[in-house]
């Protein structure tokens, strides 16, 4: 097929070099950084051993961040995967005719908008005085409702999480629809002969058939929850008083606000372990799905 032994390598080398230089080396370097005290404007670094990690585990903001990331993951599982699945089943059932393509497009639409744009959109939607949300509430209630959704510690993180549900539920729905479409039609026919109604078909045919995909969407939702950054950065930047910090913004703040690069690298290592293990689960699930 090819004459020279090195031909396959010529095809591979550019890609491999780019991946090694810009993905692998930095990630390994990050592990190394996490054992030092260093900052961006002063040359040199001091070896600290595991002190950065010890400090992180004593920092209240770290626990706030983990809790926020977890809330994000749990609520996203319920809405994006749960509601997404329900929508997928409804849209693929025979209840709807041609208009299902229209709904599919509509629900998917928010996920193609840049996260920064969605974040700023909701920054205005949640604004206490001129935001859409309070204006709508004022229509239905007595009195002058001017609640600062993003400015109050008890609602801020949930307001941001709600925004993400708005953006990504349709996205998960599409992933599930595509795998529903791969289910052989005969299975439904058999179920119909057995006298199953739509609900029973969903429970006994659809869900078991797309089990793998449901798990995969669950896993990517969890990974997404721990990679969170832009949504927080453009809305609250972690405020008010650090109540909406997540691991990503906490890392950014320690690196570029506190000037503690090594400490930030240690936070990055923690993000690495969380996202890496979840990804390994995803890959093994996808493989067990046997495609």
């Amino acid at each position: 097929m090819y004459k020279k032994k090195f031909t396959p390598y010529l095809f591979i080398i550019p890609a491999l070099l780019l991946i090694l230089i810009f993905v692998y080396i930095p990630i390994f370097e990050n592990f190394y950084f996490s054992f030092f005290r260093m900052n961006s404007y002063m040359p040199g670094k001091t070896f600290l051993g595991l002190d950065n990690y010890k400090d992180i585990f004593q920092n209240d903001i770290f626990y706030t961040a983990i809790i926020n990331n977890t809330w994000y993951a749990v609520i996203s599982l319920i809405f994006q995967v749960g509601l997404g699945l329900a929508l997928a089943i409804i849209l693929e059932s025979k209840l709807l005719g041609k208009e299902k393509k229209f709904f599919r497009t509509i629900y998917f639409l928010p996920s193609v908008i840049a996260i920064a744009a969605v974040g700023l959109m909701f920054y205005y939607i949640y604004n206490p005085n001129l935001g859409l949300l309070n204006a709508v509430i004022r229509l239905f209630t007595e009195g002058d409702f001017r609640y600062a959704w993003l400015g109050r510690p008890n609602t801020a993180i949930f307001a941001i999480i709600a925004m993400s549900q708005w953006q990504f539920t349709g996205y998960i729905m599409i992933l599930l629809i595509v795998s529903i479409q791969k289910i052989p039609q005969e299975l439904y026919e058999v179920a119909e002969i057995d006298g199953a109604n739509s609900f029973q078909k969903a429970i006994y045919v659809t869900i078991p058939q797309i089990k793998e995909m449901i798990l995969v969407t669950g896993v990517i939702t969890v990974i997404g929850a721990f990679k969170l950054f832009t949504e927080i950065f453009v809305t609250t930047r972690g405020g008010p008083y650090d109540t909406t910090q997540v691991l990503g913004t906490f890392m950014y703040k320690t690196a570029f606000f506190y000037d503690k690069m090594g400490y930030a690298a240690a936070i990055a290592v923690i993000i690495f372990f969380i996202t890496f293990t979840t990804s390994v689960i995803q890959i093994s699930l996808a493989n067990r799905g046997g495609d």
Partner: peptide
Amino acid sequence: FTILAGLLLSPQVAVLPLYKL
């Protein structure tokens, strides 16, 4: 395998060393 494993790596983990690089 090396390339495939790249799928598992989050950009956030590389951002500080990348910036120095």
